[in-house]
Design a protein around this nucleic acid. Structure first.
Lengths: 336, 336
DNA sequence: ATGAAAGCGCTAACAT
DNA sequence: ATGTTAGCGCTTTCAT
């Protein structure tokens, strides 16, 4: 109801002065600031972001685009982005590309590109050539978290390297029969991540002179149920692995459950390691290579915010850290 | 860069006609619409939400306020709200009250009340008297999901009833020694939910003439680890329950893990039931009373959107449905 | 330190 | 069916 104008009238000042006072600009008498602020409170003044956005071209908001919301990784990243934005007084607009593919187009055009945000964080997304161009046209500072995206700078862990380390870890424990529960491309999501992790696995094995069984890389779909089912199939085969490297903790949990359900024990019969650092890891006793998506999100937001205030754009990021968290799901293979 | 004006000039039409054409208003010649749209594409026209927001007073955005993001329930609700908003071409602004309490105040004033949204969905939040007043001043259509909030209409399940049914279910199976893993108030979150669930449990027991042991309502903090620890403690006592009703699936999973780690079996030695309908339930084989937070979110968004288009406000909602999903975690108590 | 005036890009009467 | 004219509520020169 009440705008800057009412405050001006009520205090006998001009709109400009009120505007300045409200924004703590220099060259406003301290006394004036006090008067203005008090009147503002009194009148229950609430600034209109549309008006200031129109006048300045700044929205004080950044968009976060996700392929789906309901995934541990995205939620954690969101948490990090949010924390940093909040400190800066920026709002977070969430764009979910999930659901019917037709929606994707709509969201993309009608929403993302609507000049509502000042910058964009894209999570694990792969874009079409056309979408990329559109994004560039907007000239928003933009970056991708979670998996390389051709043509856009990205922030995240080195997927090949973690997978390599995870496999190596199992190798060093003495395992030779190591399976890998991974993923495949999913609609609109980054297909490169599962690919790189699989390669890291294959490469580590190759270096040890091992060629993995053909069907030892089942698709766990990055879900708990997928991990369980994949493991169950692995357990059914003629030759069973003594260790499993899952491309995500969730799949690793699924594998652990399948192993127990089969009457076997982790790690006595089969060792399991994952990637992620999921909260549930502690309870499951999962040995994993943990990343910190929240930190990645915060970092991304920080970078974007800096660029919004004029800092030159970073063209490239060092890989985000991954730390080995040793718990009880991995041990040397059974003696026999 | 280019606005409605350039299109007007380029086509020889007036700003108004272009505006109308772009918004598919009636009373614009079909041919004109075509011309305008083509020119718009050609020029890479992107509407400014700030400008139209300022002109109309509508932002085509709704805010969702959460106490923390990283919780199964909230994420699912978010998914539902988002789906509905997307269909209507609305954006979703996420306000996270989590983190330092000082932030809460800032988010509340600087962001939520900034006239950036047209309506508000509040998740499991309890507000101070002052916050409530502020909210009312904004006159946004508002509603709460997940737990009653004094003074604001709310949408969600009947917590007392589910808890009653869950306990009754165990009772009907023949159990007499039933424990309840629940929660307590958490910073800024709805303290009423765990309370109601606990009461439902107590009431069902009372009706069967049972007074629960004093320490059979441990605080599982609504987390997996909390559920596990609570169960472990329960298992350590002199007299051990034959069944456990957990106020959330996550705590139920934790309880199941603790039971297994103690060398006991579910449901042979101890039965477990939960509330929620968490995806992991299937893999864990958890018998639970499932709600559908996504549907609740969608419903909420639908209602708000309707009210934005003039429909009279609904003062009250029927409780959201809860369905019993029977799996393998609950059975009659051991014979002896 | 403060004020006056123009304008951000769109929408909405009110014409015609 | 289209054009004219005012704003929406701020910020920002440019004066003073």
């Amino acid at each position: 109801m009440s705008g800057i104008q009412e405050i001006a009238s009520a205090t006998g000042l001009s709109k400009s002065t009120v505007s300045r006072a409200l924004r703590n600009l220099p060259s406003v008498a301290p006394a004036t600031v006090t008067t203005v602020r008090r009147k503002a409170d009194e009148l229950g003044y609430i600034p209109s972001s549309a008006a200031s956005g129109l006048a300045t071209g700044r929205n004080r908001a950044v968009g976060v685009v996700v392929p789906v919301i309901d995934r541990w990784f995205y939620v954690r990243v969101l948490e990090g982005v949010d924390a940093e934005l909040r400190r800066a007084g920026y709002d977070l607009i969430l764009f979910n590309l999930g659901g019917p593919p037709s929606d994707r187009e709509r969201v993309f055009h009608r929403s993302i590109l609507r000049k509502r945000v000042d910058a964009l964080v894209l999570l694990s997304l792969v874009f079409t050539e056309e979408e990329r161009e559109q994004l560039e046209l907007t000239e928003y500072p933009t970056l991708v978290i979670g998996g390389p995206a051709p043509g856009i700078r990205h922030l995240g862990i080195d997927d090949h390297d973690v997978a390599y380390r995870a496999t190596k870890y199992l190798l060093d424990l003495g395992h030779r029969r190591i399976a890998h529960i991974g993923g495949r491309d999913e609609a609109g999501m980054n297909a490169l991540v599962p690919g790189e992790r699989h390669e890291g696995y294959v490469d580590a094995l190759a270096q040890a002179g091992i060629v993995p069984e053909a069907d030892w890389s089942p698709n766990g779909e990055f879900t708990l149920a997928g991990g369980r089912d994949s493991m169950a199939r692995l357990l059914d085969a003629d030759v069973v692995p003594t260790a499993v490297f899952a491309a995500s903790d969730e799949m690793a949990f699924g594998a652990m459950i399948a192993i127990q359900q089969a009457g076997l024990r982790v790690p006595d019969d089969i060792s399991v390691v994952g990637i992620d650092g999921h909260v549930f890891g502690e309870v499951f006793g999962l040995t994993t290579f943990a990343q910190d998506p929240t930190a990645q999100g915060a970092r991304a937001a920080r970078v974007l915010l800096d660029e919004l205030t004029g800092k030159p754009a970073l063209p490239w990021f060092d890989p985000a850290p991954v730390v080995l968290v040793e718990r009880t799901s991995a041990a040397p293979p059974p003696a026999h």
